[in-house]
Design a protein around this nucleic acid. Sequence first.
DNA 1: TTGAAAGCGCTAACAT
DNA 2: ATGTTAGCGCTTTCAA
Lengths: 344, 344
Amino acid sequence: MAATLHDVAAMAGVSIKTVSNVVNDYQHIRASTRERVLKAITELNYKPNLSARSLRSGRTGVIGLALPELSLSYFAELADAVMREAAKRDLVVLIEQTGGGDRDKEIEVLSSPRLQLTDGLIFSPLGMSTDDMELLNVSYPLVLLGERIFGGPVDHVTMKNVEASKAATQHLLERGCRRIAVIGAHEGELVGSAALRVEGYREALEEAGISLDPSLLGFVVEWHRMDGAQAMRQMLASGVQFDAVFGLNDTLALGAMRVLQEAGLRIPEDVAVIGFDGIDETRYSLPTLSTIDPGRDEIAATAVRVLTERIAGSSEPFAPCQYLSKFSVMDRESTVARERQDAR
Amino acid sequence: MAATLHDVAAMAGVSIKTVSNVVNDYQHIRASTRERVLKAITELNYKPNLSARSLRSGRTGVIGLALPELSLSYFAELADAVMREAAKRDLVVLIEQTGGGDRDKEIEVLSSPRLQLTDGLIFSPLGMSTDDMELLNVSYPLVLLGERIFGGPVDHVTMKNVEASKAATQHLLERGCRRIAVIGAHEGELVGSAALRVEGYREALEEAGISLDPSLLGFVVEWHRMDGAQAMRQMLASGVQFDAVFGLNDTLALGAMRVLQEAGLRIPEDVAVIGFDGIDETRYSLPTLSTIDPGRDEIAATAVRVLTERIAGSSEPFAPCQYLSKFSVMDRESTVARERQDAR
DNA sequence: TTGAAAGCGCTAACAT
DNA sequence: ATGTTAGCGCTTTCAA
């Protein structure tokens, strides 16, 4: 049986309160007493019972992270980043998978009894929309990620989707591309990453004086590699002309790239390709994939920081904030400039 | 403030025991009573306090999963599989990252106070070795994964590394390859995946009457794509001849493949390539990568099952067991048979 | 600087 | 079929 405060107290010849004080780094303890207690703790290999502690204190030292799927690289890398941040604060992370955009499961997680084990939640929905905003009115600290819901009643950490997408498009325009296909649009979507990124694309074209050709929009249902490949195949089959592809995320871009190569098209000579997300894999594909780093580490760091602030400061609540991360264009082989191509 | 058993009991006009019985699905309750209690539960939005429950019962409903890094696809996909299995049993998973083979951190995790929040641990070390076996003598249910430690004092779920690696090699031999380079060997390693997989390679060659040429062993320190790329570059630079590459994991193989393609070699026409692990990405690379599925889902399912059995059955302890998953060769484009190649 | 005692919300043994 | 009661191990007043 594991040792308890009582065992330690008995061995050290003090009360349990004194042991508790030592364990919790209370300042006013006689050095000799502290020493005796520490000795007993070591000897008995005492470890505080966290269930008892949290029952009493109401804190668990655990934060929840709800995301679609760990097998999607972006979310695995996000989880990695969140866990590193949490570890710095001596917090541990409980991950919940909600499936790829399963709205019901997302809503279910928000009121899951499992969250009782948690001091707060970082929540990255993919299926919920602004209509579900009310459901974010929960009784625990909650930080929202992603671009499904804006203006909700909670802190929101997100990226500059429109601006970043505009920058990606401009990156292609600067390289001489004029007919830029988009892979990954969502039919009729008004909210969410796809809609925002298409909007950025539209703005960049507009500023460049290019009108948007709807036949250059490749629609998909999900954002897996397979979907990117299929949409690309359809577009090739349709016969529409294009000199660049903008994958609304890296996975789509990688899928599209593979189809282009199968079709005998050279990247970037015949078609330039850019993605979005900056997942690790883009640094190793053939060719390496230009992409947008939306500031994933910053998002993770901000989310953990804001959540811990909310958890700690229940005293003086402040209004929900929105935090936007800095993005950057990662210039890689898949968009080498026209000049260099022509020189070949 | 959240409602407690007492609140519900008061509202329903019964004792807390009755409420507890209803909550825990105890059978012998009058239907009318149950109904009244359920109504009160709904009305008060009662949720059991899990800290109190686990303090009392000694169970948390949480299992730990300690693995190197979520940003390594194999482990992300393993975590995904473990979480799905756990969810089936209404368990939640607490993930701890130990870093890529950091022995000290692995040892630290084994005695982390955070494990107090956990009923047991699934542990996948990368840095510890058989010398550290004693450290697996812990006071909580523990299931070991991986191939760093064999014959330890705990249940061990692992794959048939030698056999699977032999099968991968034979797959290449059957396709007419005779000079098979290995990417990912570890200098002087006697334990661990690399050593076992090299052993399988050796056995396959031996059976085929081919002597192992040490210059075909590409050594690396870690198993990232970068390492595979570097080792492949070195081997190309060394001038040694080969007609196939066996990457000891998929990531290495993908890195190697990229270097081969940069060097103008065609896959599989000039060099056939096979990997190991069966990560998702191998289905989408160009060409798609032949690989070994070591039975990841089966490993996850077994690990969760065995752990829950150990957690439940503290009554009649049985000796530690080893569980071996079934593997299979995934035949993809990177190893299309010589016959078809010659026909081109 | 230290101790005594109450009680967080629940389960389980025992009673009825 | 339901109620009573005693803790699980800890933190937190309140005292001394």
